[in-house]
């Protein structure tokens, strides 16, 4: 592990150098919001962003629509891969936690070559949060800061950035950063304070239990009235699914060329809140009731996925996007889990 300090000017030049060599995706302003885009110049980069519209881990590794296969009608299939090298620059610790979780999902059991080729071609430069978003609660989910899972971690300490490497790939990358010097003890102290402050600042909603308690809490909450109460005003629009960095459900569909000779098989984001998600031939829908779909999402985040992966980290990373995106304002996981704690107690 190396920790270097680089002035913001020099860092801009470093990024411009990277852009000449490979694709660099970073947070840019989009109206009064932010979104990860391919950078043409370091001047577009907004590392002071609060939160992006879409989670960058899903946008780049499990894109909204991707072609898995091409085929000839009546003939065979060929795999389609995208393994273009790129740098994902500026991902926040909570989205990084989601990325690490998704890596587990797509590399375990059945290794997903489409996801993994893209993932292995990427260099991850994470960035500590400078401006907390209005609904972030990463501190409650243990994701306000990052300890691992990045190639490089950036921390804004005022007039410069600290760059910590987390992998040989990261080591190699920052060798190219001209003007970077070894970080001094005082710089590390500054960073430590920022990390400490971020635990408090990234806490706009506060979960009243340890996040590792959620599976246990949900064990006794299946028939709780909160699911029906909240779902009464749910539009089943799936916005909470669409903006979530840990949602990975997808649909697979085929498209055919105009002359019906060639086709493609694509996967596209899907959402368990949407009506029809579990519908099978013959019009039978297994999770027909809105409250059942609503509950399923909260159970996936708090119980099913962490138990599947055998981790203590929930599959909610506290980015707060669903809280901001939900029109009837019922999606906030913290409100729901806290309500369950109030009614069912701890233990």
């Amino acid at each position: 592990m190396t920790i270097k300090k680089i002035s913001k000017d020099a860092f801009g030049k470093f990024v411009d150098g990277l852009i000449k060599q490979q694709k660099v995706m970073g947070p840019c302003a989009k109206g009064d919001r932010f979104e990860f885009e391919q950078l043409d110049s370091s001047s577009q980069l907004r590392l002071d962003y609060d939160v992006t519209l879409r989670p960058p881990n899903r946008k780049y590794f499990l894109p909204p629509v991707e072609t898995l296969l091409t085929c000839e009608v009546g003939g065979g299939y060929q795999s389609v891969y995208d393994d273009t090298e790129f740098v994902l620059l500026g991902i926040h610790p909570y989205d990084l936690a989601a990325l690490n979780q998704m890596d587990q999902i797509f590399s375990r059991d059945n290794y997903d070559t489409h996801y993994m080729k893209r993932r292995l071609a990427a260099t991850i430069i994470a960035c500590d949060v400078v401006t907390p978003s209005k609904d972030v609660f990463a501190a409650s989910m243990g994701t306000a800061t990052a300890e691992a899972g990045f190639d490089v971690l950036l921390t804004d300490i005022g007039d410069s950035y600290l760059m910590e490497t987390g992998s040989p790939k990261g080591e190699k990358l920052i060798e190219k950063a001209q003007g970077a010097v070894d970080a001094a003890a005082g710089d590390l102290e500054k960073r430590k304070n920022i990390w400490k402050e971020n635990q408090g600042r990234l806490s706009k909603h506060k979960l009243n239990c340890s996040s590792s308690y959620l599976p246990k809490l949900l064990e006794k909450a299946y028939s709780h009235p909160v699911w029906e109460e909240k779902a009464k005003t749910c539009f089943s629009c799936g916005s909470c699914n669409q903006v979530c960095p840990t949602c990975y459900c997808f649909n697979v569909q085929d498209d055919v060329s105009w002359d019906f000779t060639k086709g493609t098989r694509q996967r596209a984001w899907d959402g368990c809140l949407l009506d029809g998600f579990t519908k099978v031939a013959g019009e039978h829908e297994f999770r027909k009731k809105r409250e059942d779909r609503f509950r399923h999402r909260l159970y996936r985040k708090g119980k099913y996925v962490p138990e599947k992966l055998g981790t203590k980290t929930p599959a909610c990373v506290g980015c707060g996007r669903c809280v901001s995106a939900c029109l009837p304002d019922i999606a906030n996981p913290v409100n729901i889990y806290n309500r369950l704690i109030d009614d069912l107690g701890l233990e």
Binding site: I105, F106, D109, N110, D112, Y248, C249, F250, N251, V252, R267, D270, C272, F277, T278, K279, V280, F286, H296, Y299, K303, Y304, E307, K308
Partner: peptide, 19 residues
């Protein structure tokens, strides 16, 4: 208990019964 086993490989989420 067949469901909508869309991907068949434990990823897509459509066939999930609880966990």
């Amino acid at each position: 208990l067949e469901r909508k086993m869309k991907c068949g490989v434990g990823k897509c989420g459509h066939c999930q019964i609880n966990h």
